[in-house]
Design a protein around this nucleic acid. Structure first.
Length: 377
DNA sequence: TAGGCCATCTGGTCCT
DNA sequence: AGGACCAGATGGCCTA
């Protein structure tokens, strides 16, 4: 018994969203902080002293002229943070000499002299806190790694940055939701546009590479065939793309006529490239065609052909496409992501020995199986 | 070499 | 009180 496509997509979206929700709850503050930093950078001139104490602005030059001010402050405050000590009678005021002068007495709790035992306890507490913080950050990074494995581009050797992973994951969820809402599959161009919205240029190139798209095509010629663009109401629809492809549009990755000509090229589970009106499919037999320079994504998310030969460029294309198991079995859809490496006789996992890092999508969790079932319907 | 990304340390704050 | 979380500071590594 098969689930309906809508059901499968809904389950997939929900699982991914659940996974992300926890991650976002942990990382979102960092993202917000980035935005806040940006705003703050633009308003740094407006920074003012906080109070009458003449406290310097935290972005001010005073701080810059005093390296490790935080550390010295930390030491001074560390000296007074053990209020539970009961040996008050043996302690003295920390700033007795200073307070006897012209300066007004400091308010607040009196600092206590550090005994050797207190210093030891303080150090021990700090070490424990550091260890906890390390563990916490490692957990957070593990969650991010898990997230990297479920977004459309994944490589063990060249990971997406944290922020790019979050952005891509968000776009991925939105794209799946859009597919679910519309009930039909977008073409690969609009799909990649969805995934790449707001991503940096390198990440955009990587996603396009995963889909074997020349970014020049989908960035500068989006939806030249309007009928192929299935998401008129999508928030992703036809928006000017901020990034230009540098690597994928380089001559090395282009056909003889420039950008990779996409025609009946199949790119994924039901995804089709948008061909230039009147264009022709690439002639793979033509000596001018250098399609093998474009990183073909094999069935298991690996890359085949020339990519195995060029060690330098290999690094940039160790990316898997997560739809490897989501292919249609329809004839004529021998996609690069096909279930049995149908493209050009099949790109099997054994064809990609150099790519140890490529994640085999078939080993994935139920959502992928559900999606696979969906695309087999 | 500048900039991006990251890990780590650290003190402050909040919560249980 | 102790732990979790946050944010600033710092230094290392890598790449264009």
């Amino acid at each position: 018994m098969r689930n309906s496509p809508a059901q499968v997509l809904f389950v997939s979206c929900r699982l991914l969203a659940t996974m992300l929700s926890r991650l976002f709850s942990e990382v979102l503050p960092d993202v917000q902080r980035l935005a806040a930093d940006w705003v703050e950078d633009n308003e740094s001139e407006d920074c003012k002293a906080k109070d009458d104490e003449h406290e310097p602005c935290h972005l001010g030059e005073d701080d810059l002229d005093e390296p490790q001010e935080g550390s010295s402050r930390a030491e001074s405050e560390m000296a007074g943070d053990d209020d539970d000590e009961e040996d008050d009678e043996a302690e003295e005021e920390e700033c007795g000499d200073e307070n006897s002068g012209d300066k007004p007495k400091k308010r607040g709790p009196k600092k206590r002299k550090m005994t050797a035992a207190r210093v030891e306890r303080s150090k021990l507490r700090r070490l424990k806190a550091n260890a906890r913080e390390r563990t916490r950050m490692h957990d957070l990074n593990s969650a991010l790694d898990n997230l990297r494995k479920v977004v459309p581009c994944y490589s063990k050797t060249q990971k997406l940055s944290k922020i790019e992973t979050l952005r891509l994951a968000k776009n991925y969820i939105l794209a799946l939701g859009e597919i679910l809402r519309n009930g039909k599959r977008p073409d690969v161009v609009s799909y990649v546009q969805m995934l790449c919205k707001g991503l940096s240029q390198p990440t955009t190139n990587l996603v396009a590479g995963c889909l074997q798209l020349n970014t020049r095509n989908f960035l500068t010629e989006p939806c030249s065939d309007g009928a192929r663009f299935h998401m008129p109401s999508s928030p992703f629809s036809v928006h000017p793309y901020p990034y230009r492809c540098s690597r994928l549009s380089s001559p090395h990755y282009q056909t003889g006529s420039g950008a990779l000509n996409l025609r009946t090229h199949s790119y994924g589970p039901g995804y089709e490239a948008v061909y230039p009106p009147g264009g022709t499919s690439p002639d793979y037999s033509s000596p001018d065609y250098e399609g093998q320079h474009s990183p073909p994504v094999c069935l298991n998310g690996g890359l085949s052909g020339r990519q195995q030969e060029s060690s330098e460029t290999d690094r940039n294309y160790h990316y898997s496409m997560h739809y490897s198991g989501l292919t249609t079995s329809r004839p004529g859809h021998s996609l690069p992501f096909g279930p049995s490496g149908a493209r050009s006789g099949g790109a099997h996992s054994e064809n990609i020995p150099p790519f140890h890092d490529v994640h085999l999508q078939h080993d994935r969790a139920p959502p992928y199986e559900d999606l696979n079932a969906f695309f087999h319907n």
